[in-house]
Design a protein around this nucleic acid. Structure first.
Lengths: 219, 219
DNA sequence: AGGTACGAAATCGTATACGATAACTATGGC
DNA sequence: GCCATAGTTATCGTATACGATTTCGTACCT
């Protein structure tokens, strides 16, 4: 899983900081001081700076001129924007991929979904979220449009700092999600038309957003 | 139109190089030598480098390690990816915006579309393309999701180096486009449901792609 | 006591310098 | 005459250094 071919230092810095954000080592609001990170990694500030700016472009980091960078939190508004965008690009990615998903992949996805169901019993939100991405990644394996896939991954990264929060805070949504996965697989198996699949996949993501919104009536 | 508050030098470099690419001063394949650009702008290479990497993230520039940066062309495959993605995000942006478009905006859009029709007579592809973006920008003025709007703009930028090529190379498509604009406005005026509007907007972009594909049977 | 102004510390932004890498060129061998 | 190889050049990648800007703390004034 770890990259053998470590790229340039700016690439290493990018990977390292991104990993810390996604894993939750750096939590939202965390102050990213260039000199400090550079020292930690044993680099100078220039490549670190470049890495931070790249993360900024992806929305993981907020950068203020002459002030510095912080891990960007994701307020309710941003969450809404991100989830809405994800619902659209995931819907498209699923619909485009569907005709290319073979029976083997379906079974692999089904197995992952089964594991997710088990996570509900053991109450393992972190693993649940990982498996959820695995599930959809299997469906996207042969996605014919890498640009759209890239947008999906960007959305996932942006949600990373909130990892599994929905599972924790929105009662019942995880159970529903597992059921929707199975329904989605059946649609794909039965070669439903692209529009039906797109709507289902889109709704799958939108339902999580709706559940969040109706729970968090505040703001 | 020119920004009064010039930002940091890296920002200026970003704007300058981006403008040259979008305007067509730097054509695809053009070699972007950091030191040369830095000298032109009167900066040192560090901020220029940062600007180039940002443009790379947006897909406008291709960067090879220890080799350098070139303005990224857009081959037929990339064109397909970009147009397909655009059709999805423009469709979504239009559908989300539609309920918020007032009668005044509709009339402004209609006026722009009328100008586009005139461009067909004078054969002015450059202005046609500009107006086309203006037309859609009016519709997106109150788009409730800035993330999606950002994706639209990224797509437009990527297509910039091909500016108006469709108009030139696909006979009749521009005329069709103007008609589709009017149809779209009428859908919005009549408060058609989101799904209908989304499909129309999506199809509007997809049709241009289809026209291109059927014309350029090569490759 | 509260607010303002000044000064010090922290941090960013950029320039310059140099080492590393890849592309190019010329030379020699086959 | 062509290919391989060594040397040269161009360009990138990063380190270091310093000036610019902001922030924070302190002292002074009202």
């Amino acid at each position: 899983m770890t990259e053998a071919a470590v790229g340039s230092k700016s690439q290493q810095a990018y990977d390292a900081v991104k990993a810390r954000i996604v894993e939750g080592t750096y939590t939202p609001g965390y102050r990213l001081v260039l000199a400090k990170i550079a020292e930690d990694l044993g680099f100078s500030v220039v490549p670190v700076r470049e890495a931070i700016r790249r993360l900024e472009a992806e929305g993981l980091v907020k950068f203020e001129r002459n002030v510095g960078a912080t891990v960007s939190g994701i307020d309710p508004t941003e969450y809404l924007y991100t989830m809405q965008t994800l619902s659209i690009v995931e819907g498209a990615a699923t619909a485009l991929s569907a005709p290319l998903i073979d029976a083997v992949a379906i079974e692999r996805a089904r197995a992952v979904n089964e594991e997710m169901r088990e996570c509900l019993d053991h109450f393992d939100p972190v693993r649940f979220t990982t498996l959820n991405q695995d599930f959809h990644s299997i469906l996207f394996e042969h996605c014919p449009n890498p640009h759209i896939l890239d947008l999906v991954h960007r959305g996932w990264n942006r949600l990373a700092s909130l990892r599994s929060s929905t599972f924790r805070f929105v009662p019942g949504r995880a159970q529903e999600s597992v059921r929707e996965h199975e329904a989605l697989l059946q649609l794909i198996e039965s070669a439903a038309d692209a529009d039906t699949i797109e709507k289902a996949a889109r709704q799958h993501r939108a339902a999580t957003l709706d559940a969040y919104l109706s729970t968090a009536k505040n703001q």
